[in-house]
């Protein structure tokens, strides 16, 4: 009996020793030499492996950054400026400042604004639906409402609003990784500057059809009338393919476009006060009147000059 116990102990101990030596030898023999900075950078990164940077995960990002020796083609949208500064410190290089971005859903075609004209049955996937037909509303360009973007978001920042049938972005969770913009077959979601204190202005429509057709399909759509572009004093609004677009780099958040838009397709987000349309319109009218007067004066002066 005692013999058995002793033998068991001895054999197991010897076995353990031998195997640990083998393991040690294997670990030494097959060790891969790697730049320790890769590990450091990977630890600094958020570790979401979302692919928002364009690499196949945080490790691949770190690997590419170390290989390149700079951060020219590496930017982690999830970590933002703070993380990038740390990464730059590890690499000993500079990083370009980049404003924080957020995903913006450019469709306001809620169930109410955009009545259904047929009923879709099939796999609940925007991709499948977009490949099949123009959609269950009169709008060919709007949100299909199957939630491919919601499924694509690794941060739980997107959710479907049951009432409007449109996705909503939770700004506090959105990291602007860009997964949703790639998942949307209609290219409705755009990454835009978050704006100062989260204040921003955007056109919530991408419909390229002509005005009357758009109006018929959706009451919240941009009809491409161009009023906003004419009103904008900062040259921030362009009109292409019957739809307006606000360049967030140029926009000064004056809300004049929002006030003149006949369909309410331009949305202001994060403003402390609700928009007083009449006041803004009056401001525009006054400015225009002044400008007209100035123009009249100028022509008068010119006339005088010519006469004289």
């Amino acid at each position: 009996m005692t013999n058995t116990i002793i033998w068991t102990v001895v054999i197991l101990t010897v076995l353990g020793l031998v195997l640990s030596l083998v393991l040690f030898w294997v670990a030494r023999k097959f060790r891969v030499e790697e730049d320790p900075r890769i590990d450091d950078i990977e630890k600094t990164l958020p570790g979401a492996n979302c692919g928002g940077c364009g690499f196949a995960g945080c490790r691949a990002f770190a690997d590419a950054a170390v290989k390149a020796g700079n951060l020219d083609s590496n930017y982690c949208p999830v970590g933002g400026a703070e993380v990038m500064k740390k990464v730059a410190a590890i690499l000993g290089c500079e990083v370009a400042e980049s404003a924080p971005m957020v995903a913006v859903v450019r469709c306001a075609g809620s169930c109410q604004a955009r009545p259904k004209i047929n009923e879709y049955q099939g796999e609940r996937s925007c991709k499948v639906k977009a490949g099949l037909y123009g959609g269950d509303t009169g709008c060919l360009f709007g949100c299909l409402g199957c939630g491919d973007c919601v499924a694509a978001c690794a941060f739980g920042a997107l959710s479907m609003n049951g009432e409007t049938g449109l996705p909503e972005v939770d700004e506090s969770k959105c990291t602007a990784c860009g997964k949703c913009t790639a998942a949307c077959p209609k290219h409705i979601i755009e990454l835009r500057n978050k704006g100062p204190r989260g204040i921003r202005e955007f056109v919530s429509c991408v419909n390229k059809d002509k005005g009357p057709a758009v109006r018929k399909a959706c009451s919240a759509a941009c009809i491409g009338c161009g009023l906003c572009a004419k009103t904008c004093t900062h040259d921030a609004i362009t009109l292409a393919d019957n739809v307006a677009y606000i360049d967030f780099a140029k926009c000064k958040l004056c809300r004049e476009c929002e006030a003149v838009c006949p369909t309410g397709a331009i949305h202001g987000v994060g403003f402390p006060k609700p928009l007083d349309k009449e006041a803004v319109k009056q401001r525009i009218a006054e400015r225009k009147a002044k400008a007209a007067e100035a123009a009249k004066l100028e022509t008068a002066v010119k006339k005088e000059d010519n006469n004289g």
């Binding site: 259904k116 004209i117 047929n118 009923e119 879709y120 049955q121 099939g122 796999e123 499948v128 099949l132 037909y133 269950d136």
Partner: peptide
């Protein structure tokens, strides 16, 4: 009624 549209 609204017609159904679905893939084949």
């Amino acid at each position: 009624d609204k017609m159904i549209v679905s893939p084949s």
